[in-house]
Amino acid sequence: MSHKERIAQRAAEELSPSSIINLGIGIPTLVANYLDKEQYIMHTENGMLGVTSVEEENIDPLIVNAGKQPVGEAVGASYFDSAASFAMIRGSHVDVAILGALQVDSEGLVANWAIPGKNIIGVGGAMDLLVGAKKIIITTNHVAKDGSAKLVQECEYPITSRRRADVIITDLAVFHWRDEGYELTEVMEGSNIEEIKAKTKLSYRVHPSAMQKEG
């Protein structure tokens, strides 16, 4: 199992049956592979509730998700226009949004739409999802490709919202926001407290259960 698959599998464990879930592009998309399709309801912001996977031979080019990938229609699915779709999101009718991130900081703020110095020309639904979904789960590699920390003291990249992320799941660790700060609740298989400490710049407390799970 790859790092990304392990992150996705762990994110799936955070979800409750019959939740309305919106999956972002990248690792979040993989989460659907670890969910019972009958029990979880997927929303996509381009206007569909009841998204499921589709076999190659059944692809309809006019049924896509927000990443413009072909998807299938679950039993009981519905379609609606873009304004209605974002009313669902901003109006807190979507239970969970699982999103990727460039950086997350000690305040729980997420940067996931723009890199300084590059052209800032796309935001899509990121800001609406972050502000509107009842629960925000961030799935990301623990460090960037160049080895720099993605979990930082304060975001250097432009933030996506003032709303904080509730859960962060990486290839090394799981953090939950509790009592005004992040708590390391789990060490992912193959990692340890020292490695997490070395690669994490955001402030966090260590929950006793995280110590026990290690090794």
């Binding site: 304004a83 800032i120 800001m127």
Partner: peptide, 12 residues
């Protein structure tokens, strides 16, 4: 550049 929900609501 507008967030997608702001764009769609501005049109609506």
């Amino acid at each position: 550049l507008l967030p997608q929900g702001t764009l769609s609501e501005a049109i609506r």
